[in-house]
Amino acid sequence: MTLSTLIFRYATFAVIATLANLGAQRVVLWYTGGATGLALAIAAGTGVGLVVKYLLDKRWIFMDGSTGARAHGEKFTRYTLTGVFTTAIFWGTETAFWLIWRADLMRELGAVIGLSIGYVVKFQLDKRFVFRPAA
């Protein structure tokens, strides 16, 4: 795969996962409110975005053809663990934007900025620790 194809795919998948994340957040916020609702929305969005991005990255970025529950379980666990640091970037940025402006549009802008930074870092971590070539 060429570098330009890789960048295009990764950016496209980041956008898809971000939209899935924000969509899930909106659904949760529709039914809840306040600080608890925001926390639940961020957690739900993160979970949805994580699964969407894992499935896309595994198949179309890292060309990982492994199958079976054990292989998926091990990789998804490592994928999730590499996401802990990048999720902190995302949550922190989104929350900071909300606390500063108290507006949904600014919260979502913070989410997009945080996710963008996080995805750049996550690619490097995933390449090194999750989808590394077999020895």
Rank of each mutant, 00 (worst) to 15 (best):
V52I: 07
T82Q: 05
F97S: 05
K75S: 05
T95C: 02
L56I: 13
I61N: 07
T87C: 11
F85Y: 14
G65W: 13
L55V: 15
A69M: 12
G83E: 04
G68V: 11
V84P: 08
G83F: 04
T77K: 06
S66H: 11
S66W: 11
G68R: 06
L99A: 10
G65K: 07
K53D: 06
V48C: 03
T95L: 09
E94C: 02
G68C: 11
G73I: 11
K75Q: 09
F97I: 01
F97N: 00
G47M: 00
T93I: 13
G49W: 00
F76V: 00
Y79P: 01
A96R: 07
V84G: 05
W98C: 09
A71M: 10
A96Y: 07
Y54E: 01
A69P: 11
M63S: 15
G92L: 12
V84M: 09
W91K: 01
Y79L: 03
L50F: 14
A69R: 15
W98A: 14
D57E: 09
L99S: 12
Y79G: 03
K53L: 11
G73R: 07
W91T: 03
R70C: 13
V51C: 07
T93P: 08
A88H: 09
V51P: 02
G47A: 05
I89P: 07
A88E: 04
F97W: 02
T67R: 15
R59E: 10
W60Q: 13
K58I: 02
F90D: 07
A96F: 12
W98Q: 13
R59V: 13
L81R: 06
R78M: 03
V48S: 04
R70V: 15
T82W: 00
T95M: 10
W98D: 08
G49A: 08
A69F: 09
E74D: 11
Y54A: 01
G73Y: 08
I61V: 14
R78V: 02
K53C: 02
G49T: 05
S66M: 08
G49Q: 02
A71W: 10
T86C: 05
T80G: 06
G49V: 06
Y54N: 04
G68S: 05
R78F: 02
S66Q: 13
G47H: 01
A88R: 13
I61M: 05
T95K: 11
K53M: 10
K75Y: 03
W91G: 00
T82A: 03
K75T: 02
T80M: 04
K53P: 04
K53G: 03
S66E: 04
Y79F: 15
S66G: 14
G92M: 07
L99N: 15
E94W: 01
K53N: 14
W98T: 07
F85P: 14
G73P: 13
V52N: 00
F76N: 01
K75P: 01
G65L: 12
T87R: 03
F90L: 12
Y54F: 14
E74G: 12
T77R: 05
G47I: 00
E94T: 03
G83I: 06
F90S: 11
T80H: 04
T80W: 10
W60G: 10
G92P: 07
Y79A: 07
A69I: 09
Y79V: 02
F76D: 00
W60N: 11
D64G: 07
M63R: 15
F62P: 13
T77S: 10
R70W: 15
D64S: 13
W91Q: 00
F62V: 14
F85T: 15
